[in-house]
């Protein structure tokens, strides 16, 4: 017995999921329907929020707000985002192939809570806050994930979008992803870096890695080590070693823990240097 309900407003959606907590919330379906053969027969019902116009907006400006039902393709090709937050566009462009990007949504990518989710590291370094409805709640995205496939959301909550402050002019960014092939690959490791550069100094930075821990995770000790360092004397080798020490990858079909640890180091270093370059400075290394 599988039921279907497509609310026409957010409040309808909230009311429905409150009453039907076993219903699966479906958006683009690019994660949920993959489980067809294993689980679909036992799914009791769907609440389809892919049509909810309220969740499809991209609000630009000093504070950026992106609705949960915005697709990866829409983010990747959004002219304003491409100009002001290209980091996020690059994350979105790294998802699947064109067909997946045309259906998969920001909300789905986050709610599915894969440690490899391509949007999570960029959004976390951007300092994004996840907005939830049901019991309304705002939570830093960094605290949103609680384990592989798990979030802090209650069964009666819906993610409605994310918001973050537009990066400043002196900020630079990069998102790099390592996969077993060049397209349609789930990341073996991924890293997003956002830096702020002033007068030849790395005044601030945030590093977030995917696929090297149960949830997308900041590398805070590495950030600490690098924060305040001068660009002409960056301790790259030490930072790389610190990063490799503070991640906790596992073995799976995509790669061993050992490999992930080894490869994450240089991947991070390249992202850092690219981010510094994007901040308008030519790094030495």
């Amino acid at each position: 017995m599988t039921t279907y309900f497509a609310p026409s407003t957010l409040s309808e959606a909230v009311a429905y999921i409150h009453e039907n907590q076993t219903a699966k919330i479906i958006a683009g379906g690019t994660d949920l329907l993959v489980k067809r053969y294993e689980e679909l027969d036992s799914m009791t019902g769907f609440m389809d929020i892919s049509h909810l116009a309220e969740l499809k907006n991209i609000k630009t400006g000093e504070e950026v707000q992106i609705g949960a039902m915005v697709t990866h393709g829409e983010i990747a090709g959004h002219p304003w985002l491409l100009q002001h937050v290209p980091l996020l566009c690059q994350g979105a462009a790294a998802v699947g192939g064109p067909q997946i990007r045309n259906r998969g949504t920001l909300g789905g990518n986050l709610a599915n809570a894969s440690p490899a989710a391509d949007l999570a590291p960029p959004l976390i370094v951007l300092g994004a806050v996840a907005e939830l409805a049901g019991p309304q709640h705002q939570v830093p995205l960094e605290e949103f994930f609680s384990g592989p496939g798990k979030t802090i959301m209650q069964p009666n909550q819906i993610i409605t979008g994310v918001k973050f402050t537009k990066p400043a002019a002196n900020q630079g960014w990069a998102y790099l992803k390592l996969g077993k092939r060049k397209a349609m690959a789930i990341a073996t490791a991924s890293v997003a870096v956002l830096v702020a550069v002033e007068d030849g100094q790395l005044t601030d930075l945030r590093i977030c890695l995917g696929s090297v821990a149960p949830v997308p995770s900041r590398a805070k000790k590495t950030e600490e080590l690098l924060r305040g360092q001068r660009l002409d004397s960056l301790e790259l080798a030490a930072a790389q070693a610190q990063l490799q020490a503070e991640i906790s990858p596992i073995d799976d079909i995509r790669g061993s823990a050992e490999y992930r640890r080894q490869a994450a180091g240089p991947l991070f270093r390249r992202a850092l240097l690219q981010a510094i370059k994007n901040a308008g400075v030519e790094p030495d290394a």
């Binding site: 192939g97 077993k180 092939r181 060049k182 397209a183 349609m184 690959a185």
Partner: peptide, 8 residues
Amino acid sequence: YLIPTSLD
């Protein structure tokens, strides 16, 4: 099980 894509 990955096979090469058009980008590979």
